[in-house]
């Protein structure tokens, strides 16, 4: 009998510690602020320390997956929010978050005037505050084209031309957020003809991978895997990463006529334990210090256009002058249909 008790006692103890352990840190004091973010969150400690010095609030960051996963988790946990606020919902998921009613309106103090163009419209105007944006663009390996004495493509139409057959690789729209952005760029550019355009792309031997990593690090000629496709869907901020050691110029560039603009937002979650703290943090995020730190930490462009960009960004990571865009509510309304149609076109 004693023998059987031993494992029982051990595991009961274990469970007891488990339950006790969770009790101790489950309640956040008002001096801390929990922010749910996407996985790409990165911010230097000194910037967050500055926020703490100004407000006495410690920010705890909880990455929750990509923008889609983040939004869906917050929608699912609406009755018992995961965090006080959110950062990282983008314009392709914004209206899902708004429609689900997970946000509390907040009109950020001193929102830079250059940020006005990125605000949501209508009743949802104050639900989310734009913090930064980035352009998803087709990137080309210039050194590959130079070596082959070929002219790199410039436009979406070029990608479907025979000269570039078998050279383009893109992450899929159903599995990747840049992949979805590129699909939206083609929808904005081609309107109802977008499916025909994708048929042409597929006929031109376009390769579709699951994620950005597979496309860039395996198939792209300038990625980690030295692949065999010199054209890839990535970001307008990717080229500076391809500056070889000791050199000053990148070997790749972004095609600025192929870009979709992704805007990232922050918001206060309904049912938050610390709404006041999150409001302060949103004010801080649109302020000078945070905005200045965005390019180096998260490779995105600050919504405040008066903020100075890093030197190599100014030269090698310009944003698109005329990016494509699709209204966020249209994205939410049509997402499932578009993705299903896209899946049908690309799997033929």
């Amino acid at each position: 009998m004693r023998s059987r008790l031993l494992p029982t006692v051990l595991s009961t103890l274990l469970l007891a510690t488990a339950l006790a352990g969770c009790g101790s840190d489950s309640k956040e004091s008002p001096k801390t602020l929990v922010v749910a973010t996407h996985d790409s969150w990165a911010m230097s400690k000194s910037v967050l320390a500055k926020f703490k010095a100004e407000t006495g609030i410690t920010v705890k960051v909880r990455p929750q997956g990509d923008a889609g996963e983040l939004t869906n988790k917050l929608v699912l946990t609406k009755d018992s929010p995961l965090a006080d606020g959110v950062y990282g919902i983008d314009n392709t998921f914004a209206s899902r978050a708004v429609d689900a009613g997970i946000l509390t309106a907040y009109d950020a103090k001193e929102l830079p005037s250059s940020a006005e163009q990125y605000r949501l419209t209508g009743d949802a105007k104050d639900d989310l505050t734009p913090i930064d944006y980035g352009d998803v663009c087709v990137n080309v390996d210039d050194s590959w084209f130079a070596k082959k004495n070929l002219t790199p493509p410039k436009t979406l139409d070029d990608l479907a031309k025979p000269a570039y057959k078998g050279l383009f690789v893109t992450p899929g729209a159903t599995t990747s957020s840049p992949g979805l952005a590129f699909l939206l760029a083609t929808i904005a550019a081609k309107g109802d003809g977008w499916q025909d355009y994708w048929k042409q792309l597929m006929a031109n031997d376009t390769k579709i991978t699951a994620g950005w990593t597979d496309a860039y690090e395996v198939d792209f000629t300038a990625g980690g895997g030295n692949g065999d496709r010199p054209i890839v869907t990535s970001y307008s901020s990717s080229p500076p990463f391809t500056i070889p050691k000791g050199a000053t110029e990148p070997t790749t560039s972004a095609l600025l006529d192929t870009c979709f603009r992704q805007v990232e937002y922050a918001g206060v979650l309904k049912g938050s334990d610390n709404p006041a703290g999150m409001k302060k943090f949103i004010d801080f995020m649109v302020g000078q210090d945070f905005q200045e730190a965005l390019p180096d930490n998260m490779y995105v462009y600050p919504v405040d256009s008066t903020v100075k960009l890093p030197a190599d960004w100014a030269s090698y990571a310009p944003v698109s002058p005329h990016p494509y865009s699709v209204d966020p509510s249209a994205v939410t309304k049509n997402r499932t249909t578009w993705l299903r149609e896209w899946r049908d076109v690309t799997s033929q």
Binding site: G68, N72, G172, T174, T175, T209, G211, T336, L339, S347
Partner: peptide
């Protein structure tokens, strides 16, 4: 997902996409 490049899906990838994306 990685090896199949979207040509193939199993029940797990389907649940993943339906839950996290759609």
């Amino acid at each position: 997902l990685t090896m199949g490049g979207l040509r193939y899906s199993n029940v797990e990838t389907e649940i993943y996409l339906l839950t996290t994306q759609e």
